[in-house]
Nucleic acid binder design. Structure first.
Length: 569
RNA sequence: CGGGACGUGGCGCAGCUCGGUAGCGCACCUGCUUUGGGAGCAGGGGGUCGGGAGUUCAAAUCUCCCCGUCCCGACCA
C-alpha cells in the first residue's frame, strides 16, 4: 500500500468532545469518524485493525472447534417473543415495523437466532456444537460514550455451544476460557477473568474478561492475596460485626426535624452512626413497590437486586408513590410495622438490634429497632456493594476496587433458550433431552479501543504488531530523489514478497510530517530512506514501542525488518 | 429520564456581555523558495454562525421552541 493513495485523515487536534485516550487517538490517527452518537465509521486504518483483531479471534475460536457462520441482524418479533425477551429486555432492543405491519427486532445478541438454527440438530452424536459469527449488534444504549468503548452499533464475535449435559458444557466453557485468555494476550491486553452477573441473558457461571483502565465502566473487586476477582455487581466481602450493645425492649419514636439523610441522622440528638442505621430504599420492580433495606453506610447494587428478583426494570420509586404507600417522604422512611409490601433485606442487617430508622412520618425516626423482631423481612438477599478494604470472601485479606473495561464475557446459559423453543435431541438411550447452552462474546471495536487505552504514549498509538494497521512503514524522506525512491520501491517489493504488511510512505511531504503520522498511527517499525542514508550507506530503523533508533546497512535492511516484524507478531 | 455544558468552513477556537452583515490557527488549492522531526513567503477557495419562530431598520449576538453532541447521575431514605 502506498500512503499517497491511502485515506488517512490525521488531525493535529483531537475533537473537543473526546475525553479518553482511545477516542482522541483513534480520531486523530484517522482510524474512525463519528456518524452520530454511538455510531462510528471505520476508515481504512481502523478497518484494517478491526479486521486483524477479528482474525486473531477467528483463529482461536476455530482452534477450539468453532464453526463460523453468519446469521441475520433483523429478526421477527416472534423469535424474541418465543424466548420472552421481546418483553424482558426493555428499551435496549431496537424495534421496527415493516411495511406489512410485522414487528421486527434488530439483534442485540443472537441466542434466539442460533437456537432456531439448532432445531435441526437431532442427535447427541452431532454434539457438541460450537457455532459463532462476527456480526453487527444494535443496542439502544442509555448513553453511548468514550468513542468506541460504548456504542450503539458494533461488531461482536458471539459463539454459542450446545451440549447434551452439564459436563459437556463445562468442557466448552473451559475451552472458551482458555481461548479468550489466548486471544487477549495476543492482542496485548492483560485481561483478568472475573466473576460477573449474567444480566438479562440468564444463566449460571458467568465470567467477564476485564482490562483495568481509567476509561472503564466496570468496578472490579480484586484480592491481591488470592485469585478472587469479581465485578462489583457480583462481588461479596467479609465485614466486621458491629457492636449494637444490648437490645431495647421496644422501639422509641423520636423527633428529627429536617433530618433527611443518613449523615444528618448521625448528628441529630438521639441519632446513631451510619452502620447502626437501616437505610430504607423504595424500589419500583416492574411496577411493584418493594422495600430494600441495607445498612446505613452501605450502598445498594441494583444489578444484584435485578439478578435476584428477575425484574426487568428496577428503579427508585417516585416520591408520590412512596408517600401513598408509606405515608412519609424519603428521608423518614422505615420498614418497621410495614405489611403488604415485599421487603428484601441485606444480610448485614440480620440479627441486628438497637438500630435506628425512619418512622414513616416526616421528621420522626425510630430507635431501638430489633430487625428480626420488628421488621417482617421476606427475603434476605445480598444486595450490598462491596467497598475497598473489606475482607476478601475467600481469604479475608483487603479487597481492592479497580476500574476496568469489559472486553469479553463467557457464561453458561443453561437451557433457557432450548427449552423455550422446545428443542430436544436424542441421547444414547434414545431419550429426548434438552440441550444445554453456553454463550461467549467479544466486542471487536471495544477490544481495539481497550488496546489503545493501554498502549499509547505522547506521540500516539503503539499497536502490537499483530493488529497494527501496517507492520512496517518505509518512509521516503525526499520523494523526488530518484535513488531514494528506487531503493524504497525495491525494499517495498522485497518486504511484500516476504509477507510483511508494509506501507510505503511516498507522500510528497516533509519528513517530519511523515514521522509524526507514522508514530500517531502506531506503526511498529519504520525504515527511513533519504539522501543522507544513501550517501552513508546506513538507513535509520526505528522501533515504535521503545523509540530505539539504529542504523542498518542498506543491504541488511530488509532482513532486519523481516526479523523484527516476525519476532513481534 | 434528570442535571450541567457546548453547537461559528474538515479539525481546534475567538467574536455574543454592549445587535451594524464573520475572524484566527491548522488543514486545502496555486506559485516560488525550502526539504532527515508537524517549513517560509505571496496569492486563493471554502461558512444556511445546528434548525425554526419572534423582537428589531438591522440578529452569530437578544427571546422562545426544537434538534444535535459531550460529561455527570442513574439508588444514599
Amino acid at each position: 500500500m502506498r500512503w499517497s493513495r491511502l485515506f488517512v485523515p490525521t488531525l493535529r487536534d483531537a475533537p473537543g468532545d473526546a475525553e479518553f485516550a482511545s477516542h482522541k487517538l483513534l480520531v486523530r490517527g484517522g482510524f474512525i469518524r463519528q456518524l452520530q452518537s454511538g455510531h462510528y465509521s471505520m476508515l481504512p486504518l481502523g478497518f484494517r485493525v478491526h479486521e486483524k483483531v477479528t482474525q486473531v479471534i477467528r483463529d482461536e475460536i476455530n482452534a477450539i472447534g468453532g464453526q463460523e457462520m453468519s446469521l441475520p441482524i433483523m429478526h421477527p418479533a416472534s423469535l424474541w417473543q418465543a424466548s420472552g425477551r421481546w418483553d424482558s429486555v426493555g428499551d435496549e432492543l431496537f424495534r421496527l415495523t415493516d411495511r406489512k405491519g410485522a414487528d421486527q427486532a434488530l439483534a442485540m445478541t443472537h441466542e434466539e437466532a442460533f437456537t432456531s438454527v439448532f432445531a435441526e440438530v437431532s442427535s447427541y452424536k452431532q454434539l457438541p456444537m460450537i457455532w459463532y459469527h462476527f456480526k453487527t449488534k444494535l443496542r439502544d444504549e442509555l448513553r453511548p460514550k468514550a468513542g468506541l468503548l460504548r456504542v450503539r452499533e458494533f461488531v461482536m464475535k458471539d459463539s454459542y455451544s450446545f451440549d447434551v449435559d452439564e459436563t459437556g458444557l463445562d468442557v466448552q466453557f473451559q475451552a472458551h476460557h482458555q481461548a479468550y485468555s489466548t486471544i487477549f494476550s495476543r492482542l496485548g491486553l492483560d485481561a483478568l477473568p472475573v466473576q460477573a452477573s449474567s444480566g438479562s441473558m440468564g444463566g449460571s457461571d458467568s465470567i467477564e474478561f476485564v482490562v483495568p483502565a481509567v476509561a472503564g465502566e466496570d468496578d472490579i473487586a480484586i484480592c491481591r492475596s488470592c485469585d478472587y476477582a469479581a465485578n462489583i455487581e457480583r462481588a461479596t466481602s467479609q465485614i466486621a460485626a458491629v457492636d449494637d450493645g444490648a437490645g431495647a425492649a421496644e422501639t422509641t419514636r423520636f423527633p428529627t426535624p429536617g433530618v433527611r439523610t443518613i449523615a444528618a441522622l448521625e448528628e441529630v440528638d438521639g441519632g446513631a452512626p451510619a452502620d447502626r442505621q437501616i437505610k430504607t430504599l423504595v424500589m419500583n420492580l416492574d411496577g411493584e413497590l418493594t422495600l430494600v433495606l441495607v445498612r446505613g453506610d452501605h450502598n445498594l447494587v441494583e444489578q444484584k437486586l435485578i439478578d435476584h428478583t428477575g425484574a426487568v426494570v428496577a428503579e427508585p420509586a417516585e416520591a408520590d408513590a412512596i408517600r401513598a404507600a408509606l405515608g412519609a417522604s424519603p428521608g423518614s422512611l422505615g420498614a418497621v410495622g410495614v405489611s403488604g409490601l415485599r421487603i428484601i433485606a441485606d444480610p448485614a442487617l440480620q440479627g441486628r438490634v438497637n438500630m435506628t430508622t425512619g418512622a414513616n412520618e416526616d421528621d420522626w425516626h425510630l430507635s431501638g429497632v430489633d430487625v428480626d423482631r420488628d421488621i417482617a423481612v421476606d427475603e434476605w438477599v445480598d444486595v450490598r456493594g462491596v467497598e475497598a478494604g473489606e475482607g476478601c470472601p475467600n481469604c479475608g485479606q483487603p479487597l481492592e476496587l479497580v476500574r476496568a473495561i469489559e472486553v469479553g464475557h463467557i457464561f453458561k446459559l443453561g437451557r433457557k433458550y432450548t427449552e423455550g423453543f422446545g428443542i430436544t435431541v436424542l441421547d444414547q438411550n434414545g431419550k429426548a433431552v434438552v440441550p444445554i447452552m453456553g454463550s461467549y462474546g467479544i466486542g471487536v471495536g471495544r477490544a481495539m479501543a481497550a488496546v489503545v487505552e493501554v498502549h499509547h504514549d505522547d506521540n500516539g498509538i503503539v499497536w502490537p504488531t499483530v493488529i497494527a494497521p501496517f507492520e512496517a512503514v518505509i518512509t521516503v524522506v525526499k520523494v523526488k530523489d530518484e535513488p531514494s525512491m528506487q531503493l524504497a520501491e525495491q525494499l517495498y517489493a522485497e518486504l511484500q514478497a516476504a509477507g510483511i504488511d508494509v506501507v510505503l510512505d511516498d507522500r510528497d511531504a516533509r519528513a517530519g510530517v511523515k514521522f509524526t503520522d507514522a508514530e500517531l498511527c502506531g506503526i511498529p517499525f519504520r525504515l527511513t530512506i533519504g539522501p543522507k542514508g544513501l550517501e552513508s550507506g546506513q538507513l535509520e530503523f526505528v522501533t515504535r514501542t521503545t523509540g530505539d533508533k539504529q542504523d542498518v546497512a542498506i543491504a541488511d535492511a530488509a532482513a532486519l525488518i523481516i526479523d523484527s516484524v516476525e519476532g513481534s507478531r
